[in-house]
């Protein structure tokens, strides 16, 4: 069984002096793509201070697929929004390619639990929203959007409206929208949480396939340990109150992974280890 490393041990792979970050950018994994240093987030409430995130250190290598799991309310989603620059941290810093994140990152693809499709736009126009906001070339974006939709099994649905689609199909459209521009970082905030188990399995496989083509750095927040193990290179376990990292497991399973991987012994070990970490958090 692949050794479960402590967070520090895993991080040591990526921790290099910041100076050579850009010089070595070509060498995969040489430099952390995303680095969190002592990130904390707290809210002032009427009587006390609510600590959502406490002293989070995390390094994520280029092209690495990392999942963050943990109990409800442990701040997983908040952490993702802090990385995206959409919520400001109160302590510490987030670095992407060595540069501190001070405003919303715009060269990322982001998918939320709710698909957030605009009901007044067709499927194709929803995907093209990305191009419209960014002012990308129309014809090229259109071609790429149709291509992505076809890959997601949505060919022929381009001119349908979101309300004509099932939950799984809607979320596929949202993923296509996130992938339309060439992004290096994919942030997924429980994208499959609202889907039934069978649809979810299929979506996991599809996401793996799509991701393996471009190998963006991906950070997936999820409730599902199975999903995390199936998709990730590394699973980070968070504990609640305050939200903090309690464990980190490198997943050493060959890719591409199939649903059958879940029946293997190695998968079972990973599952048990993560499960244990969550329970003892």
């Amino acid at each position: 069984m692949a050794a479960a490393a402590s967070p520090d041990a895993v991080r040591s792979d990526h921790q290099r002096p910041q100076g050579d970050a850009r010089a070595n950018a070509v060498v995969a994994d040489a430099v952390p793509h995303v680095r969190l240093a002592g990130v904390g987030k707290s809210w002032q409430r009427k009587l006390d201070t609510f600590v959502a995130l406490d002293n989070i250190d995390l390094c994520i290598g280029r092209s690495e697929f990392v999942s963050i799991v943990g109990p409800s309310g442990c701040g997983k989603s908040t952490l993702l929004m802090v990385i995206a620059g959409l919520i400001a941290s109160t302590h510490g810093s987030v670095y992407v390619d060595g540069a501190p994140v001070e405003r919303p990152l715009t060269d990322i693809g982001i998918v939320f639990q709710r698909d957030l499709l605009f009901e007044w736009r067709t499927v194709l126009d929803n995907v093209l929203l990305q191009a419209e906001v960014r002012g990308l070339d129309k014809a090229a974006s259109r071609t790429k959007a149709c291509d992505l939709l076809a890959k997601a099994g949505l060919a022929g649905f381009e001119s349908r409206y979101p309300h004509e689609l099932s939950g799984g199909m809607r979320q596929r459209v949202a993923i296509c929208r996130a992938l339309l521009h060439e992004c290096r970082l994919l942030l997924l905030d429980e994208p499959f949480g609202a889907l039934d188990a069978l649809t979810r399995d299929q979506m996991n496989l599809d996401l793996q396939r799509i991701w393996s083509e471009e190998r963006q750095t991906a950070i997936l927040v999820t409730h599902s340990i199975e999903e995390a193990v199936l998709l990730s290179d590394r699973v980070v376990v968070m504990g609640a109150r305050p939200g903090r990292i309690v464990h980190s497991v490198a997943i050493d399973l060959p890719r591409p992974r199939t649903v059958q991987v879940r029946e293997g012994a190695a998968f079972g070990h990973y599952y048990a280890e993560i499960r244990g970490a969550i329970e003892h958090a």
């Binding site: 959409l86 919303p104 990152l105 982001i110 939320f112 957030l116 906001v133």
Partner: peptide
């Protein structure tokens, strides 16, 4: 929704 605004911001809107 907050997340819809977040989505727009992450596109640089």
């Amino acid at each position: 929704e907050r997340d819809a605004v977040f989505l727009m911001r992450s596109m640089g809107a």
